[in-house]
Write a protein that binds this DNA or RNA. Structure first.
Lengths: 235, 235
DNA sequence: GGGGGCGCAGTGGCCTAGCCTCCTAGACTC
DNA sequence: GAGTCTAGGAGGCTAGGCCACTGCGCCCCC
């Protein structure tokens, strides 16, 4: 009862689709029936009739469950469960109360701290050049009276690249959109761009000196600095 | 001669479904056309005809894209893009399994270490019960001569749940499929299931005692233990 | 009696055809 | 000019049908 409906455009304000309701019902059914990995769901025709929907709509629900990684639909056999009901519960929670801001910051922090540390260990001359270039870009933006959003983005991207860890980089990209919102807010605070740039420099120094621990600490401090306002604002 | 071919059907050896191909094509189309957030895709009837499929099948593909968080289908309006094309590319890469093993382990380690630490701080009685239940399940599997893959999975899931961090949990779901492969390999080593279970117990103790640092350390040690063989084998 | 092959029943895959609801832009009214 | 109405286009969902794949049991042959 805390969340007053997220205005954050990320969420669906619109009408519930039938297949979404079916997903919920199926998850409930799986949980109640104590089904486990390897068990197969009833046949589509049967299920559709029992749930009072057409096969086509049920098929959409099954596609959704498949994408969510809960079932694997096999031609000629049926829809077999991959995971335990607990997973279903987790996913349902995710869908229910959508990701809130602290969770986003938490994920960002986790990933970027690690990336900064790896960057300290693995950076190439090119990576260093890109980081320096990002710092200069942000400096120029600030000098021009701008908030430096672009340079900020460049910097974090350069650090991510310097870490040379493809999966982590992909995960960063995935949450990039969410992070962007918090970033723009933060840089709107008076004096914030300068502070942010200063902590960028600290991170860059630690990375260039190859000091993993220092880089991680610097990044952590930076993100905490950048996130506090957003946290206070919204939660 | 060690493994009689993993029956774990997670890797699709089977037939590609039409809607999956459509997802790929649509992602390509989005990228090529330089579409951004807010843009709407062509009408279903139009799209279906152009792609040479029925509306029902296209609808499945759209559901998949919706679950992946790429589009939002609005009644009466159309399918509007939520993210930038880069995200689409990322997701496609993730699906294509292009990432290499060390990177996967690295990402898993980063996320799970953080999750273990958070679980130490945030666990509820229910979370503890789920963790204990997972430990018992794995013990039973091992006693029965099994490798304990299932109990292992339950345990890591329970820890993820106990961390109560939705975005991090979401990221774990994304790499879950990749992680599964390394997990199964690891547990195939002689004596490994017992070692793994022991380190699970250590993690569980640290979480239950609320010791964040100890939980993080225990999880890190566990993942390093579990990953070394796979790393040596494959890279 | 045992082994192998074949066919059938059941399941999902996908399509066609159609009607409903919802949204929106533009015409119409005041 | 502002508000209202309406028609067309968009997605939502259904019904029914045919095809392809899987698995298992029967039957034939050895």
């Amino acid at each position: 009862m805390t969340q007053p409906i997220v205005p954050q455009g990320l969420k669906r304000v619109s009408k519930p689709r039938l297949y979404e309701q079916l997903v919920e019902q199926l998850l409930d059914h799986i949980e109640e029936s104590q089904l486990g990995p390897g068990d197969v769901l009833p046949a589509e025709r049967d299920l559709a009739e029992r749930l009072g929907v057409s096969r086509a709509t049920l098929a959409q629900a099954l596609v959704a469950l498949e994408v969510l990684g809960i079932i694997d639909v096999q031609h000629g056999t049926g829809a077999v469960l991959l995971y335990r009901p607990t997973v279903a519960a987790v996913i349902r929670d995710l869908r229910a109360h959508s990701s809130r801001l602290p969770d986003i910051v938490e994920a960002r922090s986790t990933l970027e701290v690690k990336l900064a540390g790896l960057a300290a260990l693995r950076h190439t001359p090119d990576d260093v050049a890109a980081i320096e270039s990002a710092l200069s870009a942000m400096q120029e933006e600030i000098d021009a009276g701008d908030r430096g959003v672009h340079g900020d983005e460049l910097f974090h991207l350069a650090v991510t690249t310097a870490a040379h860890s493809s999966v982590l980089a992909q995960l960063m990209t995935f949450i990039a959109e969410m992070v962007l919102e918090t970033r723009i807010e933060s840089l709107g605070q008076p004096g914030r761009p300068e502070q942010s740039l200063a902590s960028h420099r600290a991170i860059a120094r630690a990375i260039q000196s190859g000091d993993q621990l220092a880089a991680e600490r610097a990044m952590l401090a930076h993100i905490e600095l950048v996130s506090d306002v957003a946290l206070l604002r919204d939660v």
